[in-house]
């Protein structure tokens, strides 16, 4: 009887610890992911960064969840693998990647998406990207430009570095069509 009670108590504690009573705030695990996202990739001598806007959107989303260390470790390993892969291609920017190289990045992105239970919404407009949680809550709804314009300004938000949580998901959600047709400008240095 005592053993059964102890077992039930242990199970109850595990269940309680999994529920996110205070999702607000950036815990240590989430900070490690954000820090990793800020680390640039060195693509053939060019330092390529995740745009600040995307890191900020990641931070906004992390304020609504409680990422576990296990999840963070998994995502960080995917980011590191993606960065190493990009650096190993010998290319100077993502525009130069071959179809099979993009496929590899997409598979990293899909693994990261599975960890955080995210959905990439296939766009009706090539210039818009939407990422939601599995229940439909929007966490990224990004168009071409930070300063909203519907004129002919060139792309001002560079997809310079495939952040495995957001930027590569953006590549995934927009598909290869987006990569082919977008003009990548203004790599942040």
């Amino acid at each position: 009887m005592k053993k059964l009670c102890a077992l039930l108590l242990a199970v109850f504690l595990v269940i309680v610890s999994c529920s996110s009573a205070f999702a607000a705030g950036i815990n240590a695990a989430e900070q490690s992911v954000l820090g990793n996202m800020r680390t640039p990739a060195n693509m053939n001598g060019h330092k390529v960064y995740v745009p600040t806007a995307y890191i900020n959107q990641a931070e906004a989303h992390f304020n609504t969840i409680d990422m576990t260390q296990q999840q963070a470790d998994k995502i960080n390993s995917l980011i590191n693998a993606g960065r190493a892969f990009l650096e190993g291609t010998g290319k100077s920017n993502i525009k130069e990647l071959s179809a099979s190289e993009r496929q590899t990045l997409l598979s990293y992105a899909s693994q990261a998406a599975a960890v955080l239970k995210l959905t990439a919404v296939a766009g009706s407009d090539e210039t818009r990207i939407k990422i939601t949680t599995k229940d439909g809550t929007v966490i990224v709804d990004e168009s071409n430009n930070i300063i909203k314009t519907t004129g002919f300004s060139p792309l001002t938000v560079p997809i310079a570095f495939a952040s495995l949580i957001f930027v590569v998901l953006i590549l995934a959600s927009a598909g290869l069509v987006l990569i082919k047709k977008r003009e990548l400008k203004n790599e942040e240095i």
Binding site: L106, S107, A109, S110, L118, T119, K134, D135, G136, S173
Partner: peptide, 10 residues
């Protein structure tokens, strides 16, 4: 795995 990225729960 890429395809499942485009699926929602509802």
């Amino acid at each position: 795995s890429i395809g499942s990225m485009f699926l929602q729960d509802s």
